[in-house]
Amino acid sequence: MTAARPQLRFHDLTLGYERHPAVHHLDGAVEEGALLAICGPNGAGKSTLLRGIIGQLRPLGGRIERGGLDARDIAYLPQGSQVDRSFPISVYDMVCMGLWRRSGLFGGIGRADRPKVAEAIAAVGLEGFEGRPIGTLSGGQMQRTLFARLLLQDARLILLDEPFTALDAKTISDLLDLVRRWHGERRTVLAVLHDFDLVRAHFPQTLLLARAPVAWGATAEALAPENLLKARRMGEAWYETADPCAA
C-alpha cells in the first residue's frame, strides 16, 4: 500500500456569506482514501465547507488545495437534494447522468455503458424501477437513485451532505454498504452526519466543526463529551454588527 497523500488541504480557510464567516480559520488535510465524518450543530458550517470544496463558494480568506483534482473528479450530493421531482424523467435516465464525465454534452450512452448502468441500479436495489418517473418515487427510493448516479460518476472524492436524513434503517444500511465499498476502492469520502452512533460505528475519522474546528482526528476522541459540549457552546454566532476579524 502506498503512503497516503493529502487529497485536500485547507490553509487558514474562511468561508461564509456577505463577509460573515460560517467556517472560520480552518487548517488541516484530508488524506487520499480517507473516510471522514463532518459533525457539528446546525449552522456550524458543515454544508458551507462542502460547497467551498466543490468551488461553489469562493473563500473569504485562505485557500483550498485540491491535490490536482478536477471539478469532474468530485461528486457532490447536496443536502435534501434540490431535484425537481415533477420533471418527466425516468429513474434510468436520472442514473445515466452519472456518466456525464465521459459522455459530456453529446456523447452517446452506448451498449458498453448499459451493463454499468444496470449494475449501479442493482447495487442500490432499484431493479424493476428503471422506467418509473422520478415523481413517483418515495424519499428512500429517490436517495437510492441519487446514490446510483454517484456510483456511475466514478469520482475520486465524494461529498455527501446529510445523505441519510429521513431514511429507514434498511435504506441507511444499504447505502452505507456503498460508502464502505468506495472506501475499499480508496476513494475519499466526506459525509456530513448528525447521528453520532452511526459515525462511531462506520467512520474512522471525524471533523467536529462549530464554525471554527473543535476537534479533528480519530472518531472516538473527536466525539468525546467535552468536545461535544464545547461545540454546542460555540454554536451559532452571527452578529449583524460584528467587527472585521483581526486574526
Binding site: I54, Q56, A71, R72, I74, A75, Y76, P78, S81, Q82, V83, D84, F87, I89, M94, M97, W100, R101, G104, L105, I134, R149, Q153
Partner: peptide, 12 residues
C-alpha cells in the same frame, strides 16, 4: 438544469 441544477453546475 430543470431536474437538478446543483448537479449540472458540479459537472459542467
Amino acid at each position: 438544469e430543470c431536474v437538478d441544477p446543483a448537479f449540472l453546475s458540479s459537472v459542467s
